[in-house]
Amino acid sequence: MESFNEYHLNPEDFPFLKPFQDNWLGIRDEFTRFINQASEDELKFTYDVLGPKSKTIKTKGNSKYSAFGILFQGLFIEEYIQLHQIKYPNYETNEASEKAFILREKYFTNLAHVIAQINLNNDNIFRNVYFGTFLPGLDIKLHVNYNHHTNRGYLGLIVPEGDVAMKICHEKLCWHEGKFMVLDHSYPHCPHNYTNYDRTVLVVDFFKPDQPREEVIQFEQEQVAQRMEDNPYSLGVFGKSDKAQEEDFIKYGLAHQLEWDKSL
């Protein structure tokens, strides 16, 4: 039986995740259809505009992490672009918003429907929904995600056999197709993909249900304003505070030390 703790959370404690899990095959099919059928222009636009970018999360070696999505800070991507009037090197704001809407309608209608229905019934609890792909050999350095108002769920879509995992505190957790892994990302962590194949999950950030909604909304608004000022292409997902500090390395090392002491 899988064990859970303060940073590795039981998905069953969050029943609003179930519609995603029930529809995981359809969500995966939309992703693979897009990857296989989208034109070069559509793919370029997607990774230029729909992918949250980080300036602080670093990798070891040359392998990359790619991401793109349709919901950011509770808004569908075309609405988010308009709200923040994001300017891109190759696209005007209105053009980027229109193209994003067309792509969402063309390729991700099922995913958008699931998001809309759950948010309608749960007071807009979902904040970010995007696909995250680890390319072969990816090794992300230790970092935190300073989003203490949210938890992050990973729904496994394409998970190869082999060593592809999340190291958080003293644990090494693995993704599984069709199942959620839910983490509190304020704990230091470093994921990797040491296989020869891509790993893709649906990343779902949601408000912590046990925190007052007014407080988490206020925190999110302040955090997003700072992040968008520093890097508008972060889409409010990543920021300077994600970089691991000295105390995070100490916390990570101490967790391993306690586990080693227990084993000895």
Rank of each mutant, 00 (worst) to 15 (best):
Q82T: 14
G26M: 02
N110W: 11
L157Q: 10
E214K: 15
E171N: 12
F76R: 00
F131G: 06
F14S: 00
E40T: 08
S63D: 01
P52E: 06
N128R: 01
L264P: 01
F31H: 10
E220S: 02
H148G: 05
H148N: 13
S39F: 07
S186T: 15
F16R: 07
V144G: 03
I86L: 09
F108P: 05
R152C: 07
D205E: 09
E259A: 09
R33Q: 12
G74E: 06
D248H: 15
C174N: 05
I102V: 14
W175Q: 01
W24H: 14
A67K: 08
H84E: 15
S3D: 04
G137R: 07
F72K: 03
V204D: 04
Q73T: 09
E247L: 11
Y65M: 09
P89K: 05
H113P: 02
R152K: 09
R127A: 01
W24E: 08
L103S: 08
E229K: 15
P209Y: 05
N128Y: 04
N90M: 03
E12V: 05
Y80A: 03
T46Q: 04
K99S: 01
F72S: 08
Y154W: 13
F31L: 12
V49S: 08
M181C: 11
K208L: 12
F4D: 00
V144N: 05
Q218T: 14
D13R: 08
G178E: 07
K87A: 12
N121A: 12
L202Q: 05
H170R: 09
A225G: 09
F72A: 08
A96P: 02
E79W: 10
D205F: 11
F14E: 03
L50C: 03
N94D: 11
L183V: 15
R127P: 00
E12R: 06
A255T: 02
L111K: 04
M181Y: 08
L254Q: 10
A116S: 10
S39A: 10
E42Q: 14
V129D: 05
F108S: 00
Q211I: 14
K172P: 06
M166H: 13
I27W: 02
P136R: 10
I77D: 03
P15R: 03
K55W: 01
F76H: 04
H189K: 09
N122A: 04
Y194I: 00
K18D: 10
H256C: 11
L25R: 15
F206T: 10
Y91C: 04
R28Q: 12
K87L: 07
H143P: 01
F31P: 04
I77Q: 02
D242V: 07
Y146L: 08
K208Y: 13
E247H: 13
T133G: 08
N193K: 08
N10Q: 05
E98A: 14
K87S: 15
F238E: 08
A38V: 10
F249V: 14
A244P: 09
Q73C: 06
K55H: 05
I102Y: 11
K58H: 05
I70C: 14
K60Q: 06
Y88Q: 03
R199S: 13
V216P: 01
L83N: 10
E98G: 04
R199D: 08
I158K: 11
T133E: 07
C174Q: 09
E229I: 08
N90Y: 05
G137L: 09
